[in-house]
């Protein structure tokens, strides 16, 4: 589904990714763990074609290598859901409008399409009661759940989460991770980037470790992909008491 072959990315003098090769299969759960500026965000940006590799080849589904046209980039991004650390919500629009925007971008304009899809996504993340609120009126955890609703509303095959718990306190972080876990269980491939080992532990799945732009321990996929046996809770006593609504994306 996603394959990097000897990918390097250089920003001027700085080498952000150095000869990275790895792959991710359909429906997989993968965590990219690395310190700040290790190359995690660059890796995610390469997947969404927000930036181009300096060398090497990237294949996303049937799109392989090379610089995509603007139209193809847009098409690719419509098949990927992305969650950012800083949420990237539009402050002058309600929660409903933020999520509905993604539905419209996917080409659905009639209310009979937009409203049920949006409400369903909001229900899945436990925000159905806050659809009229502006992002500024929400807690950070709720904002991230709104961003997740926007990312999953079109049922993407791949969900990328770039430090999704970075701005959250532990309880909200647990809720978000539990939500991502459910989205994965419903069939979506989820790729999470984080600096925090405890988040990686809680998220579970296969793990890629990035250090200064290189895969750790020689950079071979076999060494870099460290499987974690089972998802664990992330300081989650509160999450167990008040879990978000179940993800029913595959239903």
């Amino acid at each position: 589904m996603i394959q990097f072959e000897h990918v390097s990315k250089r920003y001027g003098e700085r080498l952000a990714l150095d000869d990275v090769s790895w792959r991710m299969n359909e429906g997989e759960r993968v965590c990219v763990l690395g310190h700040s500026a290790a190359g995690k965000t660059t890796l995610l940006r390469l997947i969404t074609h927000e930036t181009q590799p300096t060398s090497g080849t990237i294949a996303i589904g049937t799109l392989r290598g090379g610089r995509l046209s603007r139209a193809h980039r847009a098409l690719l991004r419509r098949t990927i859901g992305v969650i950012y650390e800083d949420f990237r919500l539009l402050g002058d629009r309600s929660v409903f409008e933020n999520v509905a925007l993604a539905v419209r971008i996917a080409g659905h304009f009639s209310d009979s399409d937009v409203i049920p899809r949006t409400l369903r996504a909001l229900e899945e993340v436990g925000l159905h009661g806050k659809q009229a609120a502006l992002p500024g009126e929400l807690s950070f955890g709720e904002r991230q759940r709104c961003a997740i609703a926007r990312a999953i509303v079109n049922r993407p095959a791949i969900l990328l989460a770039d430090e999704p718990t970075g701005a959250l306190e532990p309880r909200s972080a647990s809720e978000v991770l539990a939500l991502l876990g459910r989205i994965h269980q419903e069939g979506a491939a989820v790729l999470l980037g984080t600096t925090r080992p405890e988040v990686a532990e809680a998220f579970g799945g296969r793990r890629i470790v990035l250090e200064d732009g290189r895969l750790r321990e020689g950079g071979t996929p076999e060494h870099a992909f460290m499987p974690v046996p089972a998802p664990q809770s992330f300081e989650a006593p509160h999450a167990a008491q008040a879990p978000p609504a179940p993800y029913t994306g595959g239903a």
């Binding site: 969404t48 603007r70 847009a74 991004r77 419509r78 992305v82 990237r88 925007l101 993604a102």
Partner: peptide, 16 residues
């Protein structure tokens, strides 16, 4: 700009 950038990241076409 912020709105335009978010739309582009979400996969909006130039036409949209």
């Amino acid at each position: 700009r912020q709105q335009v950038e978010v739309m582009i990241k979400l996969g909006a076409s130039d036409g949209f």
